[in-house]
Design a protein around this nucleic acid. Structure first.
Lengths: 211, 211
DNA sequence: CAGTAGACGAGACGTTTTGTCTCGTATATA
DNA sequence: TATATACGAGACAAAACGTCTCGTCTACTG
């Protein structure tokens, strides 16, 4: 039977995970859920920087050590708390039209970022990732990579169908799709609204589509 | 003669400034410069999160109170330390071609973000702004607004010359210009290089120019 | 040419948060 | 039923923030 990672210092070579052995059978499901729920509640009430591990523990009716037993830091808890949001909100659209697919993706993303606490959570996680390269790795993998991969698929399908030119830079296209969204989320100089999404999609299509 | 703001609590209605009365004649120019230099040194050595007020004070050979006398928080010091970089690096290009103007702007921005510690500094400041709305205001004003205004001028000139369509959304166009750059700076999934800038400018022009 | 206000270096201090450690208790597996 | 181990509670050290108070030095002011 494998020992738990908090007993022996393994995991030193790999990019250190932000959670520890979540498959252990003896883990209390009640605690696990209480911690994640308390995290989301606190983030909604006080914003990312208002969440502390002690506050989570108190709200969840849990000892602080119970949190540190299963996660390596606060960001790990918050990531897991919002991983569901992020995962569930990425259904691959397949309307037959690249423009409509992109519209759906960006509409859903901007909606979830502005109408739930997910926007504040992700902004805080990006902020934290600036000080913590391991966190940055996990963040990219968990919240960025899947959306980028999905968008890539959509665009490649568009090229195969002859809807899009085959010679634009795919990585840059994906950056142009998401970059402006994150930019408005983080800088907050203008709202992430429908007009914005519509203009963005239109612009992308003008660039990428067969003339 | 006006009292200093740290003696009486004025500045409560306005967005609280991150510096305090920098015009005072009795301020030691030696300290001022030593603090800003130490800040940049430390940020280059240890990154944004490795900079502490105590470390700045020690490196500058200065009392901690001397820092808090003139700035309200660490972020204020870092902003002032990099304000010069940001300001000096925005010469308005005027080549007569929108594409060339944009190319110059983005080339210069990406160069300064990747070859100096300015990139790490701004990423850290954006991170900090997520937890501090007043900081966010100052950041937008100091590091975002001037570039946006300049870009707006360039695009408006292009419209006047008949080089650009008059009917694209100006704000979104500026977001598409800078959003992908910040996105790569903060997420670090791909480099901020020449290819990227070139593709981005090309895409913008395809969208905005008269067909 | 003094006198004085105020900036300065040094560092103690209280606060907050992090992450570790150690109890005694409760619970699930064997 | 026995044992391992997760749990709640909370003490603890370390780090950083921001405030406060010394005694010193310097630059305006009369």
């Amino acid at each position: 039977m494998p020992q738990h990672s908090h007993d022996t210092q393994i995991d030193e070579s790999q990019p250190q995970p932000l959670t520890k052995d979540p498959s252990c059978r003896r883990r209390s499901q009640r605690c696990h859920q209480a911690i994640l729920s308390a995290t989301i509640e606190l983030l909604e009430e006080k914003g990312y920087s208002g969440v502390s591990v002690e506050a989570i523990a108190a709200r969840a009716g849990v000892g602080k050590q119970t949190i540190y037993r299963w996660w390596t830091c606060k960001a790990g808890v918050i990531m897991e708390a919002y991983a569901d949001y992020a995962a569930k909100s990425v259904p691959m659209p397949e309307t037959g039209s690249v423009k409509e697919d992109l519209r759906q993706i960006l509409h859903q993303l901007s909606t979830i970022l502005t109408t739930t606490s997910t926007g504040a959570a992700l902004a805080g996680l990006i902020a934290e990732a600036q000080a913590n390269p391991e966190m940055a790795d996990v963040f990219r993998e968990k919240f960025v990579a899947s959306r980028r991969a999905m968008t890539r698929t959509i665009l490649e399908r568009g090229i195969e169908r002859g809807e899009l030119r085959p010679d634009f830079n795919m990585d840059v296209a994906i950056d142009v799709t998401y970059g402006p969204v994150w930019y408005r989320l983080l800088i907050k100089h203008a709202p992430l609204d429908e007009t914005f999404v519509e203009e963005l999609v239109t612009m992308l299509m003008v660039w990428m589509q067969v003339q």
